[in-house]
Write a protein that binds this DNA or RNA. Structure first.
Ligand code: MN
Ligand code: MN
Ligand code: ZN
Ligand code: ZN
Lengths: 189, 189
DNA sequence: TTATTATTGAGATTCATTTTCAATTATAGC
DNA sequence: GCTATAATTGAAAATGAATCTCAATAATAA
Protein backbone atom coordinates (compact mmCIF):
# COMPACT_ATOMS: atom_id res chain seq x y z
CA UNK A 1 0.00 0.00 0.00
CA UNK A 2 2.38 2.65 1.17
CA UNK A 3 5.93 3.18 0.01
CA UNK A 4 7.48 1.84 3.14
CA UNK A 5 5.82 -1.56 2.86
CA UNK A 6 6.79 -1.99 -0.72
CA UNK A 7 10.37 -1.07 -0.20
CA UNK A 8 10.68 -3.53 2.67
CA UNK A 9 9.14 -6.21 0.49
CA UNK A 10 11.57 -5.39 -2.28
CA UNK A 11 14.50 -5.57 0.10
CA UNK A 12 13.23 -8.88 1.33
CA UNK A 13 12.91 -10.19 -2.20
CA UNK A 14 16.42 -9.02 -2.89
CA UNK A 15 17.72 -10.82 0.13
CA UNK A 16 15.84 -13.93 -0.91
CA UNK A 17 17.42 -13.82 -4.38
CA UNK A 18 20.84 -13.80 -2.80
CA UNK A 19 19.86 -16.67 -0.56
CA UNK A 20 18.57 -18.64 -3.52
CA UNK A 21 21.76 -18.06 -5.45
CA UNK A 22 23.93 -19.01 -2.50
CA UNK A 23 22.03 -22.25 -2.08
CA UNK A 24 22.03 -23.07 -5.78
CA UNK A 25 18.26 -23.01 -5.99
CA UNK A 26 16.01 -21.38 -8.55
CA UNK A 27 13.88 -18.39 -7.94
CA UNK A 28 10.31 -18.28 -9.21
CA UNK A 29 7.60 -15.69 -9.56
CA UNK A 30 5.52 -17.72 -7.13
CA UNK A 31 8.09 -17.30 -4.41
CA UNK A 32 8.40 -13.59 -5.00
CA UNK A 33 4.65 -13.15 -4.92
CA UNK A 34 4.58 -15.02 -1.64
CA UNK A 35 7.21 -12.76 -0.14
CA UNK A 36 5.48 -9.68 -1.42
CA UNK A 37 2.23 -10.76 0.16
CA UNK A 38 3.82 -11.73 3.45
CA UNK A 39 5.40 -8.32 3.76
CA UNK A 40 2.04 -6.72 3.08
CA UNK A 41 0.62 -8.52 6.12
CA UNK A 42 1.25 -6.59 9.29
CA UNK A 43 0.03 -9.24 11.63
CA UNK A 44 1.01 -12.71 12.59
CA UNK A 45 -0.32 -14.95 9.88
CA UNK A 46 -0.91 -18.58 9.05
CA UNK A 47 -0.72 -20.52 5.81
CA UNK A 48 -4.41 -20.36 5.24
CA UNK A 49 -4.58 -16.61 5.58
CA UNK A 50 -1.66 -16.23 3.22
CA UNK A 51 -3.31 -18.56 0.74
CA UNK A 52 -6.59 -16.67 0.84
CA UNK A 53 -4.95 -13.27 0.52
CA UNK A 54 -3.03 -14.39 -2.52
CA UNK A 55 -6.12 -15.93 -4.00
CA UNK A 56 -8.06 -12.70 -3.51
CA UNK A 57 -5.44 -10.98 -5.57
CA UNK A 58 -5.77 -13.61 -8.27
CA UNK A 59 -2.38 -15.05 -7.42
CA UNK A 60 -3.31 -18.71 -7.60
CA UNK A 61 -0.44 -20.33 -5.79
CA UNK A 62 -1.02 -23.81 -4.46
CA UNK A 63 -0.82 -24.55 -0.79
CA UNK A 64 1.87 -27.09 -1.52
CA UNK A 65 4.02 -24.28 -2.81
CA UNK A 66 3.30 -22.18 0.22
CA UNK A 67 4.31 -25.01 2.50
CA UNK A 68 7.39 -25.58 0.40
CA UNK A 69 8.36 -21.92 0.50
CA UNK A 70 8.10 -21.49 4.25
CA UNK A 71 11.27 -23.34 5.27
CA UNK A 72 13.17 -21.33 2.70
CA UNK A 73 11.77 -18.09 4.01
CA UNK A 74 12.69 -19.11 7.52
CA UNK A 75 16.15 -20.24 6.54
CA UNK A 76 16.79 -17.03 4.65
CA UNK A 77 15.81 -15.00 7.69
CA UNK A 78 12.70 -13.41 6.23
CA UNK A 79 10.12 -14.92 8.54
CA UNK A 80 9.90 -17.00 11.65
CA UNK A 81 7.37 -19.09 13.46
CA UNK A 82 5.77 -17.28 16.34
CA UNK A 83 3.41 -19.80 17.82
CA UNK A 84 1.39 -22.93 17.37
CA UNK A 85 -2.29 -22.26 17.88
CA UNK A 86 -5.54 -23.91 16.91
CA UNK A 87 -3.67 -26.82 15.48
CA UNK A 88 -1.33 -24.97 13.19
CA UNK A 89 1.65 -22.71 13.11
CA UNK A 90 1.60 -18.93 12.86
CA UNK A 91 4.36 -16.82 11.42
CA UNK A 92 5.57 -13.26 11.21
CA UNK A 93 7.97 -11.55 8.89
CA UNK A 94 11.11 -10.51 10.71
CA UNK A 95 13.28 -9.02 8.00
CA UNK A 96 13.60 -5.32 8.67
CA UNK A 97 12.04 -5.64 12.10
CA UNK A 98 13.61 -5.53 15.51
CA UNK A 99 13.46 -8.66 17.61
CA UNK A 100 10.59 -8.61 20.07
CA UNK A 101 8.77 -10.84 22.50
CA UNK A 102 5.06 -11.32 23.11
CA UNK A 103 2.62 -10.71 25.90
CA UNK A 104 -0.48 -12.84 25.52
CA UNK A 105 -3.82 -12.54 27.24
CA UNK A 106 -4.89 -16.08 28.05
CA UNK A 107 -8.46 -14.92 28.25
CA UNK A 108 -9.09 -12.94 25.07
CA UNK A 109 -6.03 -13.87 23.04
CA UNK A 110 -4.81 -10.31 22.70
CA UNK A 111 -1.14 -10.15 21.85
CA UNK A 112 1.16 -7.24 22.64
CA UNK A 113 4.72 -7.03 21.45
CA UNK A 114 7.53 -5.74 23.59
CA UNK A 115 11.30 -5.60 23.68
CA UNK A 116 13.57 -5.60 26.69
CA UNK A 117 17.32 -5.38 26.85
CA UNK A 118 17.65 -7.17 30.16
CA UNK A 119 16.66 -10.40 28.49
CA UNK A 120 19.86 -10.39 26.52
CA UNK A 121 21.97 -10.11 29.63
CA UNK A 122 20.17 -13.04 31.22
CA UNK A 123 20.69 -14.91 27.98
CA UNK A 124 24.40 -14.26 28.09
CA UNK A 125 24.67 -15.25 31.71
CA UNK A 126 22.87 -18.55 31.25
CA UNK A 127 24.76 -19.32 28.06
CA UNK A 128 28.03 -18.85 29.87
CA UNK A 129 26.90 -20.94 32.82
CA UNK A 130 25.96 -23.89 30.67
CA UNK A 131 28.54 -23.60 27.93
CA UNK A 132 26.02 -22.78 25.25
CA UNK A 133 26.60 -20.35 22.40
CA UNK A 134 23.14 -18.80 22.43
CA UNK A 135 21.89 -17.54 19.11
CA UNK A 136 18.34 -16.55 19.95
CA UNK A 137 15.60 -16.74 22.49
CA UNK A 138 11.90 -17.00 22.79
CA UNK A 139 10.15 -15.27 25.63
CA UNK A 140 6.44 -15.10 26.09
CA UNK A 141 4.51 -13.67 29.00
CA UNK A 142 1.05 -15.05 29.70
CA UNK A 143 -1.62 -13.41 31.76
CA UNK A 144 -4.70 -11.23 31.71
CA UNK A 145 -4.92 -7.98 29.85
CA UNK A 146 -6.43 -5.03 31.71
CA UNK A 147 -9.85 -5.54 30.14
CA UNK A 148 -10.04 -9.22 30.97
CA UNK A 149 -8.68 -8.62 34.45
CA UNK A 150 -11.54 -6.19 34.98
CA UNK A 151 -14.12 -8.74 33.89
CA UNK A 152 -12.63 -11.35 36.18
CA UNK A 153 -13.01 -9.08 39.17
CA UNK A 154 -16.65 -8.28 38.49
CA UNK A 155 -17.55 -11.85 37.76
CA UNK A 156 -18.33 -13.60 41.04
CA UNK A 157 -19.34 -17.04 39.82
CA UNK A 158 -16.43 -19.33 39.16
CA UNK A 159 -16.17 -21.52 36.18
CA UNK A 160 -16.11 -25.02 37.55
CA UNK A 161 -17.48 -26.81 34.54
CA UNK A 162 -15.16 -29.03 32.62
CA UNK A 163 -17.32 -28.39 29.58
CA UNK A 164 -15.33 -25.26 28.99
CA UNK A 165 -12.01 -27.04 29.09
CA UNK A 166 -10.17 -26.77 25.85
CA UNK A 167 -8.05 -29.41 24.31
CA UNK A 168 -4.66 -28.30 23.16
CA UNK A 169 -3.83 -25.69 25.63
CA UNK A 170 -0.64 -25.44 23.78
CA UNK A 171 1.21 -22.22 24.29
CA UNK A 172 3.95 -21.06 21.99
CA UNK A 173 5.64 -24.26 20.98
CA UNK A 174 7.43 -25.80 18.06
CA UNK A 175 10.85 -27.13 17.40
CA UNK A 176 13.55 -27.32 14.82
CA UNK A 177 13.18 -30.84 13.55
CA UNK A 178 16.24 -32.84 12.82
CA UNK A 179 14.90 -35.46 10.43
CA UNK A 180 13.06 -34.77 7.20
CA UNK A 181 10.29 -37.18 8.09
CA UNK A 182 6.68 -36.25 8.21
CA UNK A 183 5.82 -33.85 10.78
CA UNK A 184 3.29 -31.81 11.13
CA UNK A 185 -3.22 -18.19 18.15
CA UNK A 186 -4.76 -14.48 17.39
CA UNK A 187 -2.59 -12.60 15.14
CA UNK A 188 -1.78 -9.15 16.20
CA UNK A 189 1.63 -7.93 15.24
CA UNK B 1 11.00 -47.52 40.84
CA UNK B 2 12.25 -45.69 43.91
CA UNK B 3 10.21 -44.42 46.80
CA UNK B 4 10.46 -40.83 45.81
CA UNK B 5 8.90 -41.35 42.42
CA UNK B 6 6.03 -43.31 43.79
CA UNK B 7 5.25 -40.86 46.51
CA UNK B 8 5.22 -38.00 44.03
CA UNK B 9 2.92 -40.00 41.80
CA UNK B 10 0.65 -40.71 44.75
CA UNK B 11 0.56 -37.06 45.70
CA UNK B 12 -0.27 -36.20 42.13
CA UNK B 13 -3.06 -38.74 42.07
CA UNK B 14 -4.38 -37.33 45.30
CA UNK B 15 -4.37 -33.86 43.85
CA UNK B 16 -6.12 -35.13 40.76
CA UNK B 17 -8.84 -36.73 42.87
CA UNK B 18 -9.52 -33.42 44.51
CA UNK B 19 -9.60 -31.73 41.16
CA UNK B 20 -12.04 -34.31 39.84
CA UNK B 21 -14.32 -33.85 42.80
CA UNK B 22 -14.20 -30.09 42.55
CA UNK B 23 -15.18 -30.25 38.91
CA UNK B 24 -17.90 -32.82 39.43
CA UNK B 25 -16.19 -35.35 37.21
CA UNK B 26 -15.57 -39.05 37.81
CA UNK B 27 -12.26 -40.61 38.48
CA UNK B 28 -11.26 -43.83 36.75
CA UNK B 29 -8.48 -46.39 37.07
CA UNK B 30 -7.38 -45.42 33.56
CA UNK B 31 -6.72 -41.86 34.63
CA UNK B 32 -4.79 -42.92 37.68
CA UNK B 33 -2.69 -45.34 35.66
CA UNK B 34 -1.93 -42.52 33.26
CA UNK B 35 -0.82 -40.24 36.07
CA UNK B 36 1.25 -42.98 37.63
CA UNK B 37 3.02 -43.60 34.36
CA UNK B 38 3.59 -39.94 33.62
CA UNK B 39 5.25 -39.46 36.99
CA UNK B 40 7.46 -42.43 36.29
CA UNK B 41 8.76 -40.66 33.17
CA UNK B 42 11.61 -38.33 33.98
CA UNK B 43 11.84 -36.76 30.58
CA UNK B 44 9.69 -34.67 28.39
CA UNK B 45 7.25 -37.04 26.76
CA UNK B 46 4.67 -37.22 24.02
CA UNK B 47 1.40 -39.09 23.71
CA UNK B 48 2.93 -41.88 21.74
CA UNK B 49 5.64 -42.55 24.26
CA UNK B 50 3.10 -42.56 27.04
CA UNK B 51 0.90 -44.92 25.09
CA UNK B 52 3.74 -47.36 24.41
CA UNK B 53 4.99 -47.30 27.97
CA UNK B 54 1.55 -48.12 29.26
CA UNK B 55 1.12 -50.83 26.70
CA UNK B 56 4.44 -52.40 27.70
CA UNK B 57 3.09 -52.66 31.20
CA UNK B 58 -0.07 -54.29 29.93
CA UNK B 59 -2.10 -51.22 30.69
CA UNK B 60 -4.15 -51.10 27.53
CA UNK B 61 -5.48 -47.60 27.56
CA UNK B 62 -6.69 -46.17 24.27
CA UNK B 63 -5.08 -43.16 22.74
CA UNK B 64 -8.45 -41.43 22.78
CA UNK B 65 -8.40 -41.68 26.55
CA UNK B 66 -4.89 -40.34 26.69
CA UNK B 67 -5.85 -37.37 24.58
CA UNK B 68 -8.93 -36.88 26.71
CA UNK B 69 -6.94 -37.01 29.92
CA UNK B 70 -4.33 -34.47 28.93
CA UNK B 71 -6.42 -31.31 29.22
CA UNK B 72 -7.54 -32.48 32.65
CA UNK B 73 -4.00 -33.10 33.74
CA UNK B 74 -3.02 -29.68 32.50
CA UNK B 75 -5.97 -27.97 34.10
CA UNK B 76 -5.30 -29.68 37.40
CA UNK B 77 -1.72 -28.50 37.34
CA UNK B 78 -0.06 -31.89 37.03
CA UNK B 79 1.52 -31.47 33.64
CA UNK B 80 2.14 -28.82 31.04
CA UNK B 81 3.04 -28.62 27.42
CA UNK B 82 6.69 -27.87 26.86
CA UNK B 83 7.04 -27.70 23.13
CA UNK B 84 5.70 -28.64 19.75
CA UNK B 85 8.22 -30.71 17.83
CA UNK B 86 8.11 -33.14 14.95
CA UNK B 87 4.51 -32.36 14.38
CA UNK B 88 3.18 -33.00 17.84
CA UNK B 89 3.19 -31.69 21.36
CA UNK B 90 5.52 -32.72 24.15
CA UNK B 91 4.72 -32.52 27.82
CA UNK B 92 6.34 -32.71 31.22
CA UNK B 93 4.94 -33.28 34.67
CA UNK B 94 5.21 -30.19 36.80
CA UNK B 95 3.54 -31.17 40.04
CA UNK B 96 6.22 -31.26 42.71
CA UNK B 97 8.77 -29.58 40.45
CA UNK B 98 10.07 -26.06 40.46
CA UNK B 99 9.34 -23.92 37.46
CA UNK B 100 12.21 -23.93 34.99
CA UNK B 101 13.09 -22.79 31.51
CA UNK B 102 14.92 -24.60 28.73
CA UNK B 103 18.16 -24.24 26.85
CA UNK B 104 18.03 -26.04 23.54
CA UNK B 105 20.86 -26.98 21.22
CA UNK B 106 19.58 -26.29 17.72
CA UNK B 107 22.17 -28.70 16.36
CA UNK B 108 21.80 -31.88 18.40
CA UNK B 109 18.54 -31.21 20.20
CA UNK B 110 20.04 -31.45 23.65
CA UNK B 111 17.89 -29.74 26.25
CA UNK B 112 19.13 -28.32 29.50
CA UNK B 113 16.86 -26.98 32.18
CA UNK B 114 17.62 -23.88 34.16
CA UNK B 115 15.96 -21.44 36.51
CA UNK B 116 16.66 -17.76 36.96
CA UNK B 117 15.08 -15.28 39.31
CA UNK B 118 15.76 -12.26 37.17
CA UNK B 119 13.17 -13.43 34.72
CA UNK B 120 10.46 -12.83 37.24
CA UNK B 121 11.49 -9.24 37.76
CA UNK B 122 11.43 -8.61 34.03
CA UNK B 123 8.05 -10.25 33.95
CA UNK B 124 6.74 -7.93 36.64
CA UNK B 125 8.16 -4.89 34.95
CA UNK B 126 6.63 -5.68 31.57
CA UNK B 127 3.33 -6.66 33.13
CA UNK B 128 3.14 -3.32 34.87
CA UNK B 129 4.12 -1.42 31.74
CA UNK B 130 1.40 -2.97 29.66
CA UNK B 131 -1.30 -3.40 32.27
CA UNK B 132 -1.20 -7.16 32.20
CA UNK B 133 -1.61 -9.41 35.21
CA UNK B 134 1.02 -11.93 34.27
CA UNK B 135 0.44 -15.46 35.46
CA UNK B 136 3.29 -17.32 33.82
CA UNK B 137 6.00 -17.16 31.24
CA UNK B 138 7.80 -19.25 28.76
CA UNK B 139 11.45 -18.64 28.12
CA UNK B 140 13.62 -20.72 25.86
CA UNK B 141 17.21 -20.10 24.86
CA UNK B 142 18.41 -21.49 21.55
CA UNK B 143 21.98 -22.03 20.51
CA UNK B 144 24.80 -24.51 20.27
CA UNK B 145 25.87 -26.72 23.12
CA UNK B 146 29.60 -26.94 23.80
CA UNK B 147 29.97 -30.18 21.84
CA UNK B 148 28.22 -28.90 18.77
CA UNK B 149 30.02 -25.58 18.98
CA UNK B 150 33.26 -27.55 18.88
CA UNK B 151 32.24 -29.49 15.79
CA UNK B 152 31.21 -26.28 14.05
CA UNK B 153 34.64 -24.81 14.56
CA UNK B 154 36.51 -27.83 13.26
CA UNK B 155 34.19 -28.30 10.31
CA UNK B 156 35.37 -26.13 7.45
CA UNK B 157 32.90 -27.08 4.75
CA UNK B 158 29.63 -25.24 5.05
CA UNK B 159 26.31 -26.82 4.53
CA UNK B 160 24.90 -25.06 1.53
CA UNK B 161 22.56 -27.74 0.34
CA UNK B 162 18.90 -27.14 0.66
CA UNK B 163 18.40 -30.86 0.85
CA UNK B 164 19.10 -30.65 4.55
CA UNK B 165 16.48 -28.01 5.13
CA UNK B 166 13.74 -29.22 7.40
CA UNK B 167 10.12 -28.35 7.19
CA UNK B 168 8.53 -27.22 10.40
CA UNK B 169 11.34 -25.48 12.05
CA UNK B 170 8.88 -24.81 14.76
CA UNK B 171 10.37 -23.89 18.07
CA UNK B 172 8.41 -24.03 21.27
CA UNK B 173 4.95 -23.03 20.25
CA UNK B 174 1.36 -23.69 21.09
CA UNK B 175 -1.53 -21.67 22.36
CA UNK B 176 -4.49 -21.82 24.61
CA UNK B 177 -7.31 -22.16 22.17
CA UNK B 178 -10.47 -20.25 22.73
CA UNK B 179 -12.94 -22.34 20.82
CA UNK B 180 -13.56 -26.03 21.35
CA UNK B 181 -13.38 -26.70 17.65
CA UNK B 182 -11.00 -29.11 16.08
CA UNK B 183 -7.49 -28.25 16.50
CA UNK B 184 -4.85 -30.00 16.64
CA UNK B 185 11.01 -32.28 20.43
CA UNK B 186 14.06 -34.79 22.06
CA UNK B 187 12.88 -35.10 25.48
CA UNK B 188 15.44 -34.56 28.12
CA UNK B 189 14.14 -33.34 31.41
C1' DT C 1 -29.38 -51.76 44.26
C1' DT C 2 -30.83 -48.51 40.89
C1' DA C 3 -30.80 -44.58 38.04
C1' DT C 4 -28.06 -41.37 35.94
C1' DT C 5 -24.64 -40.10 33.07
C1' DA C 6 -19.51 -39.63 32.62
C1' DT C 7 -15.98 -42.40 30.63
C1' DT C 8 -14.01 -45.79 27.71
C1' DG C 9 -12.32 -48.03 23.40
C1' DA C 10 -12.68 -48.82 18.52
C1' DG C 11 -13.02 -46.89 14.60
C1' DA C 12 -14.29 -43.07 11.69
C1' DT C 13 -13.24 -38.31 10.83
C1' DT C 14 -10.89 -34.01 10.43
C1' DC C 15 -7.51 -31.20 8.85
C1' DA C 16 -2.66 -29.40 8.68
C1' DT C 17 1.15 -30.80 6.36
C1' DT C 18 3.84 -33.74 3.26
C1' DT C 19 4.51 -36.48 -0.70
C1' DT C 20 3.94 -38.06 -5.43
C1' DC C 21 4.26 -37.33 -10.13
C1' DA C 22 3.64 -35.40 -14.55
C1' DA C 23 3.94 -30.88 -16.64
C1' DT C 24 6.27 -26.60 -16.52
C1' DT C 25 10.07 -23.52 -16.37
C1' DA C 26 14.44 -21.38 -14.38
C1' DT C 27 19.20 -21.58 -15.14
C1' DA C 28 23.73 -22.86 -17.24
C1' DG C 29 26.28 -23.73 -21.25
C1' DC C 30 26.72 -23.24 -25.91
C1' DG D 1 18.50 -17.42 -28.53
C1' DC D 2 18.46 -22.62 -28.12
C1' DT D 3 19.13 -26.90 -25.39
C1' DA D 4 19.77 -29.88 -21.78
C1' DT D 5 19.19 -30.48 -17.00
C1' DA D 6 16.93 -30.63 -13.09
C1' DA D 7 14.34 -27.65 -9.77
C1' DT D 8 9.65 -26.10 -9.15
C1' DT D 9 4.81 -26.22 -9.59
C1' DG D 10 -0.11 -27.73 -8.96
C1' DA D 11 -3.40 -31.31 -8.22
C1' DA D 12 -4.38 -34.96 -5.89
C1' DA D 13 -3.20 -38.68 -2.87
C1' DA D 14 -1.13 -39.85 1.45
C1' DT D 15 0.18 -39.17 6.17
C1' DG D 16 -0.54 -38.68 10.90
C1' DA D 17 -1.80 -36.14 15.17
C1' DA D 18 -5.81 -35.03 17.35
C1' DT D 19 -10.82 -35.18 17.74
C1' DC D 20 -15.29 -37.09 17.42
C1' DT D 21 -19.03 -40.70 17.37
C1' DC D 22 -21.39 -44.14 19.53
C1' DA D 23 -22.46 -48.25 21.87
C1' DA D 24 -20.85 -50.59 25.98
C1' DT D 25 -19.16 -50.00 30.54
C1' DA D 26 -18.73 -48.30 35.07
C1' DA D 27 -18.37 -44.39 38.67
C1' DT D 28 -21.22 -41.83 41.65
C1' DA D 29 -25.39 -40.33 44.19
C1' DA D 30 -29.63 -41.48 46.05
MN1 MN E 1 5.29 -10.41 16.75
MN1 MN F 1 11.60 -29.38 31.44
ZN1 ZN G 1 -7.72 -10.11 27.38
ZN1 ZN H 1 24.40 -29.87 20.61
Amino acid sequence: MNLNNNSTAMDAIQKFREYIKEKGLRNTPEREMIIEEIFAIHNHFDVDELFLRLRNKKKRISKASLYRAIPLLIDSGLIKEVYFENGHLHYEHIYGHKHHCHLRCVSCGRIVEFADDEIVSIQNKIGKNYGFAITSHRFELLGYCSQCEQKQKTCTERNTSIKTLKRHQAIDMSIQTKNPHNQRGDTRR
